[in-house]
Nucleic acid binder design. Structure first.
Lengths: 188, 188, 188, 188
DNA sequence: AATGAATGAGGCTTCATTCAT
DNA sequence: GATGAATGAAGCCTCATTCAT
């Protein structure tokens, strides 16, 4: 059963969030997952591999959340807006996971291979943006750059929402405001 | 002599950038700085304190770079634009330092106290933005949020410039384009 | 079925030769033998017992090879010469097994009991040598010592043959030369 | 001071002899040497390096013992005889060290580099033997082979002496007898 | 009898920090 | 103040052995 794998990843997320990657010994992860130390290494070759797995897991949850209900055939704006909402929604609902994912992405702890796989999954977003530019809806800057702005602005929205602990009402308003700013900026 | 302090901080920056914080033993830092292992602890109570000092140093250089030539009495837009240019300029010129500063900010390695001091120094920016909103030049969203967008967009610009290794010509164009997008988005 | 016992011993020999005793986990032995980890312990109480069994197996093969065609009723010299040839022949044909047996004999990994049983089987050689001395054919030194010289000289012959990768022709010559030296030395 | 290096090597010899290489943890070696665990690794990069150092140390003592009083200008037989006596003398006086050296040579624990250095130091013996063959004093077999026989016979003599716990009188006799057998065998 | 996941003691090694010189 | 050898707790990982299926 892959029950234990899941437990170990979940335990890692818990502890990494509380103590950081380097202050969390594998032994504590195992104990927190309710298994013996050695068991961890039956499921993950090394601590590095475990960290990779945590990253992949988070990324996958995140992607999956964003893609839920994606209006494949909706208008261009509708599609961009959908990502905007779901991205921020995930970050706000799972702030620990969101923050962990962000830290991992920057920290050289995740293997190149794991990072690559992200790029692949985000290809659809790149394509979306590219088309926006081609169609003249977006300003004519390199699509990679527009993608970064897109990401950065959503990230900022998430952080603000979390830090200010926005409730339902104000959250919706905040998300909308953020989107308007972004949209105004990047549309021709 | 505070010469040695500087050497130690500089050595830390070098090595942290190459190997990461946790793979860089204090002994190696000391050797790279040309002093004995024990000497490091005459200048910094612990490794944590050294890391804090590195962070403060980078932040200070960064602030100082941004403030150089700040048009205290210039127009509102001129002042915002100045920060935009100088921020990105620093990031592009010192990518290692920039990346280190970013990582430190996120990694729980820097004490709260060190992070606070940043807030203080950035107060001027907050004030600037606040006034922009009050004056009706900026859209009416919480100033903290606008500050985050500001930061996030500059950060994106830096990353794009570094990753694509932009030369002088294209760099200037890139910076300007980025600013236009930002400005268009946040101005009423 | 003792099929599996044999497979496990054979797998051990393979892997011990490649990696050494201490770098070969029981789990790898089991896998290489095509059985489950736990199965190994159904056949051998512990790794030590398995190592003992390997030793006994090798020793037995070796003895058996040496005794094949032993001229029970041949002349004294013919009998000694037979051992000489067959000993070296085995070592050269099965260098891995030969080397393993030698290592095991020296390495404290084999139980005293296993070593004793060797002594018993070699008793015939001891008797042979003793008689050689009594008959005045061999020099008058303690038979145990003569036995050691006998063994040592055969061992040297094997090592030289292996290291120099002697082919059929030169091998025969080498074996003969070695025997002549030995014989000249130990005969009165 | 290299005092501690010596203590650590000496402790290793003690413990390796009692328990074997693999049953002797570095922590016990350190404790037995009267230093902290970590100290061991200030002097030896790893356990493997320590084992190498032990081997080199033993080999050096052995060589030095053999060369003491070597009759550079003595007759051919005198020179060979000298090595014979001093080799066995060392083995008998330091049986633990002798046995350890032998085990190490066979056990794949010693790096190739360490083994090579032995070859170099034994070059003189090889030359000696070569000349013996050229001069017609020794039988015409490959010098490498004669060297092996030489070594093997001395080794056998040591083992017999140790196992039978020979006292001064009988030891001298034993050494002489052994030499006679060897000499008779290998001289034309 | 066979399986193989689970166990956890134990091994090697690292490194922040101390302190005698 | 400077030095750097010494320290030993703590981390990662291995693997012989067990046992529920």
């Amino acid at each position: 059963m892959n029950d234990k794998q899941t437990q170990l990843i979940e335990a890692s997320i818990d502890l990494f969030a509380q103590e950081g990657f380097w202050n969390t010994p594998t032994s504590r992860i195992a104990k927190h997952a309710g298994v013996a130390t050695g068991t961890l290494f039956n499921y993950f070759e090394s601590k590095d591999v475990l960290i990779d797995a945590v990253y992949k897991q988070l990324k996958q949850e995140w992607m999956s959340h964003m893609m839920t209900g994606y209006p494949e055939n909706g208008s261009f704006k509708a599609r961009v807006e959908h990502i905007w909402f779901r991205f921020i929604d995930w970050g706000v609902r799972f702030p620990v996971r969101y923050s962990l994912m962000t830290q991992l992405k920057l920290s050289d702890l995740v293997s190149e291979e794991a990072k690559q796989s992200q790029a692949a999954e985000l290809a659809f977003a790149y394509t979306m943006i590219e088309q926006g530019i081609t169609d003249g809806q977006f300003v004519d800057v390199p699509p990679g750059y527009l993608g970064m702005i897109f990401y950065a602005d959503m990230d900022a929205a998430v952080h603000f929402a979390i830090e200010n602990n926005l409730g339902d009402m104000s959250l919706t308003r905040h998300i909308t405001q953020g989107f308007d700013i972004f949209w105004k900026g990047v549309t021709g």
